[in-house]
Design a protein around this nucleic acid. Structure first.
Lengths: 203, 203
DNA sequence: GTCTATAGCGGGATAGAC
DNA sequence: GTCTATCCCGCTATAGAC
């Protein structure tokens, strides 16, 4: 009966990721995870000690993936307008692949805010922000863009990229479209977002 | 011991609203509601039959409040750019007052999407959308704004208004600000959003 | 209308046999 | 490593006394 250790462990992890991301912490039971991974409750606790510990692993993964992508594109040295376009592209690319992640993170942050304080500080978002602020300042100097408060601008970019995915469930109802149709709409929407942001910046 | 009926009922309702909106359905127990309203579990079920029924009442309230406000401003007949500004003002006004509502609605929609299908259809968002599309068409004709796909534009407005509130918990950490400071930032941010949207539209 | 007591279930975790 | 059986807790809902 002895199976490859990492194979079983991996299967539990995969199933747990799917369920936690889809249904959140509270709504996912260890019994659900055991059933879906064709093991049992004891196995889940054998490999991961506790439900909460398993959850932390999943959450860390998801959060890091999102953050790495954002930070790396934001600090590239492309020409300014190309940078903007690349950042938006990059957000959409990752969110099309993992559309449930923002809702997942926002839900769980809401339930347990302390969890993030330290985690975020470790990543040093401050320096990324400063670099972006510098780029904006340079463009203002050159007169290619309007006066642009960096924090407000970044918040707008984030809003325009992330919200359509958060709004997915509600949006597909309002638009009377299937989830698939809505997903296609979102991809198309990206083009308008790029154009929208660049128009808003230009003098 | 017999108290004014509506007084006790109202107290339970107030407490339930606060807890459900703050912590969501799953994380709020009838015991919590009973304790916080200084009654007991039996009383809550006496007045509201079940936890789920009580929740539905709260959810309906919150959702209607949001929707009424949005729809009424969107269909006003102000001059176009004033309309845009008023809509944004109106969103922010209501979200400053009830900042937890978007997260609450999004969480619960995610858990139980069917609940909304019918509810939304009843409100006839279609006619509101058509009216807005007409206004946009007129401005395009006049040459005052760029070519603007109505659905994409509305989604952008929604994103820019709602996301800062959804992002509140995370955002205040990232910005290393208290919730109060972040709230002030948001109010200020509104001005930039108005300017941003109008720039993005203008030719 | 109010409250206590409890039924009855589903949850997380673990002991202990294999 | 694996699995069954079980402990113990917290939850919703309700019966029944007052």
């Amino acid at each position: 009966m002895k199976q490859n250790v990492s194979e079983v462990k991996e299967r539990i992890l995969d199933v747990a990721r799917e369920l936690f991301i889809k249904n959140g912490y509270k709504s996912t039971s260890v019994r659900d995870i055991a059933a879906a991974s064709e093991t049992n409750v004891a196995m889940v606790n054998y490999y991961f000690h506790s439900k909460y510990n398993l959850f932390e692993i999943i959450f860390e993964e998801a959060f890091n993936r999102l953050q790495r992508k954002i930070f790396s594109t934001l600090s590239s040295d492309l020409p300014f307008f190309e940078l903007i376009e690349t950042v938006i592209d990059s957000y959409y690319e990752m969110l099309v692949e993992y559309p449930q992640i923002p809702v997942f993170i926002l839900n769980e942050v809401n339930q347990n805010p302390e969890r993030l304080s330290e985690r975020i500080r470790k990543k040093d978002p401050h320096s990324v922000f400063l670099q972006m602020a510098k780029r904006i300042g340079e463009e203002e100097e050159k007169g290619t863009i309007k006066e642009t408060p960096p924090l407000d601008f970044l918040l707008n970019m984030l809003s325009l990229c992330v919200f359509p995915f958060i709004f997915k469930d509600l949006g597909s109802h309002v638009a009377e479209a299937s989830q698939e149709e809505y997903s296609k709409m979102i991809v198309n929407h990206k083009k308008y977002v790029v154009q929208f942001v660049i128009n808003a910046l230009k003098k």
